[in-house]
Simulated assay, not measured.
Amino acid sequence: MTRLVELEATGPRKLDPEDIDDEKGNVAICQCGLSDDFPFCDGSHRKTSDEEEGTTYVYEDGERKVVEEVVTEDDTDENE
């Protein structure tokens, strides 16, 4: 399975000592792209537990949708 994730950051996120929560302990970094507390994990990855291999998903407004086709703009004309 794959997931389309829209991110706006243009650089890395440096973790500082104050990023460690005294109650929760270690910091978990989101790898699914769904966390409301991104780049930190908030458990949203649990929504992905039944995703099927070979299927691409997008999550919009809390709803999971299957992506039938990903189309990107061909920029070859811009280089001529």
Rank of each mutant, 00 (worst) to 15 (best):
E69Y: 02
H45P: 00
C32F: 05
E69M: 06
V67F: 02
D19K: 04
P39G: 04
E60A: 07
V67T: 14
E60Q: 09
V70C: 05
L34I: 04
S35Q: 02
E51I: 10
D19G: 04
E23P: 03
Y59V: 11
C30T: 07
V67H: 04
D19M: 03
V58H: 00
S49D: 12
S49K: 14
R46W: 06
P17Y: 05
G54T: 02
E73S: 14
K65Y: 07
P39N: 13
D50G: 05
E69L: 10
R46A: 11
E53F: 06
D74L: 03
C30D: 13
S35M: 10
T56Q: 10
K65D: 04
N79T: 10
C41R: 01
F40G: 00
D75R: 14
E73M: 13
D61Q: 15
V67P: 02
D22Y: 15
E52P: 02
D19V: 01
D50Q: 09
D77I: 06
D22F: 10
R46H: 13
N79Y: 09
D42C: 03
L34E: 00
G62M: 01
D21I: 01
V67E: 06
I29K: 00
E80V: 08
P39H: 09
E18D: 14
N26K: 14
C30N: 03
E60W: 11
D42S: 03
I20V: 11
H45N: 06
V58F: 00
N26P: 14
D22S: 12
V70S: 12
D36P: 09
V67Q: 06
V70A: 06
E18G: 15
S35I: 02
V27G: 01
P17G: 05
T56I: 05
E53T: 14
H45G: 00
G43I: 03
D22I: 07
C30H: 02
V27K: 04
D77W: 11
K24G: 10
Y59E: 08
E60C: 06
E69R: 10
F40N: 02
D22R: 14
E52R: 13
T72R: 08
S35L: 03
V71T: 13
P39Y: 08
C32D: 01
R64Q: 11
T56Y: 04
R64L: 08
K65V: 00
D74E: 07
Y59H: 12
D50R: 09
D50V: 05
C32L: 15
F38Q: 04
E23Y: 07
D36K: 11
N79R: 12
E80Q: 15
V70N: 03
F40R: 02
E51W: 15
H45R: 01
E78S: 11
E60S: 07
T56E: 01
T56D: 06
V71E: 12
E51A: 12
D36W: 12
D37W: 06
K47D: 10
Y59R: 05
A28P: 01
